[in-house]
Amino acid sequence: MNRWIKSVAALVGALACTAATPRGMDPDNPTCPAAPNWSDYKTMVLTPFQRSGETVLLAEGRVDSELPARLEKVLTDNPSISEIWIRSPGGDARAGNAAGLLIRKFSKERQMVTRIPSGWTCFSACNFVFMGGRARTIDPGGYFMVHMFTMTGDKNAIQSSVALGTESTTELISDVEREAALMATEDNDLLIRLDVSRDLLSDIMYRQKSIATGSDRSTRRCLTRKEALKYNVVNVDPD
């Protein structure tokens, strides 16, 4: 009887989790899609195209260290670009910051709109590229996905450090802490320069776990439209 009760309880629990997570969404990160459409390009591909008489730039793929240089060239060579559509799984944090500032610089000469189209996802370093737009919009069904900045994803560095002993591991931890603090300062400064509320960091980004633990597997968060407007991530509402 006890085994039967446990089986029923487990089934009810599983059904409850399924019911609580809308179809197509990630059970571990229920505000975000289970299969984010952020492109599998290893480096970000920049493609200008014509749409209704205007030039739009598609920015798709991983934010790599050379992105700022390529982006500056494309924007310089195509002065008619007025809008950038972005989807990316993130990548190099500092390159993302630099690309965002670059977009803002070009926005002084022309109105530069950044957009996350419906079905597309902009994650991690992509967030700061997107926020570079003077005007920013997320279409219904587009996702601005955030997480906590971490360096612990570098498993090779961690394993090598542990193998070398306590002193090396302590040094690595100190490096991680310094880098995290520096990135937090840079991100905070960047949000000020891009007219985005710094509360986005404290209220949303820094509240996310960097590593999934226990029963709570959530490490990612997708902003609701209300939150995107509240923190001025979006300053043009498509509705």
Rank of each mutant, 00 (worst) to 15 (best):
A98R: 15
R178I: 05
N156E: 10
L182F: 00
L46W: 03
Q159E: 04
P22A: 03
I103E: 04
M25K: 13
H147K: 13
T150M: 00
L223V: 05
E177G: 05
S118A: 15
W38K: 06
M148I: 07
M183G: 00
T169K: 13
N2M: 11
Y143W: 10
R87V: 08
L194G: 09
L194F: 01
A20S: 02
E177D: 07
T170F: 13
S202G: 11
N232F: 01
A16S: 12
P36E: 11
N235W: 00
G119L: 12
S7F: 06
A157E: 05
R51N: 10
T121G: 12
K209L: 14
I204A: 12
L164P: 07
T47K: 14
V162P: 02
A135N: 08
A228S: 00
A99Y: 01
D28S: 14
A180T: 04
G24E: 04
M148P: 12
E66M: 08
M112K: 09
D64H: 09
A135L: 07
K6D: 15
Y41H: 15
K42I: 04
P68D: 02
K6S: 15
C122H: 09
D203Y: 03
T76E: 12
S218Q: 15
S82G: 14
A181R: 13
R62S: 12
A69Y: 02
R221G: 02
Y143T: 04
K73T: 01
K209D: 11
